[in-house]
């Protein structure tokens, strides 16, 4: 995090960084809110881009550079494009026919708020003022070392999973 100057070394508080975080987080929450409320599917996909980019910035905050780059490449580069293809192929409504019954929305909102309440209480209760100290970005070398030594078995499993997903998607979606 070289780009953010440390303002007060005594309190170890990065003011500029926190302001920046607040702006990004606010944008993300607003964008996420739009994703789940907008009636237009294409708009929803575009708002999703904002959220995903915000998540990538959060990864940068946390010093996980490689994950941030992967996030941009895989999510914004590939997944969103997939979604847009999906929208076109299904000719999903571009307009505002998203008429969700009030009852259903209320139910979902209750569940969501309930979940958030539980999580917020638990988190605040257990972590209070715990700090994250980021000494510097995590190197790609460290990540790749970990993947190819300690986590080699899950890595191989993921490769099999991707193959299975590939075949599965073809089998499910092909015309026959």
């Amino acid at each position: 995090m070289q780009l953010l100057a440390q303002v007060s070394s005594e309190t170890d508080l990065y003011v500029a960084q926190n302001i920046f975080f607040a702006v990004i987080a606010g944008t993300m929450i607003y964008a996420a809110f739009r994703v789940v409320t907008t009636a237009n599917v294409v708009h929803a996909a575009l708002w999703l881009v904002v959220v995903l980019a915000g998540v990538a910035v959060q990864f940068l905050f946390l010093g996980a550079e490689f994950v941030a780059v992967t996030q941009v490449l895989v999510y914004i580069g590939a997944v969103i494009v997939l979604f847009l293809f999906g929208v076109m192929l299904t000719r999903a409504s571009m307009g505002d026919d998203e008429t969700v019954a009030g009852e259903k929305r209320a139910m979902a909102a209750i569940v969501g708020v309930l979940l958030f309440a539980v999580m917020a209480v638990a988190l605040v209760d257990s972590f209070e003022d715990t700090r994250v100290d980021i000494d510097g970005p995590q190197g790609v070398v460290e990540v790749s070392d970990a993947i190819f030594s300690q986590y080699i078995v899950p890595f191989e499993a993921v490769s099999v999973l991707l193959l299975a997903a590939l075949i599965g998607a073809i089998v499910v979606a092909r015309k026959d």
């Binding site: 987080a25 905050f61 917020a120 988190l123 980021i134």
Partner: peptide, 9 residues
């Protein structure tokens, strides 16, 4: 930075 700000987000 606090851990909780990320977790709450």
């Amino acid at each position: 930075m606090l851990l909780n700000q990320f977790l709450l987000l």
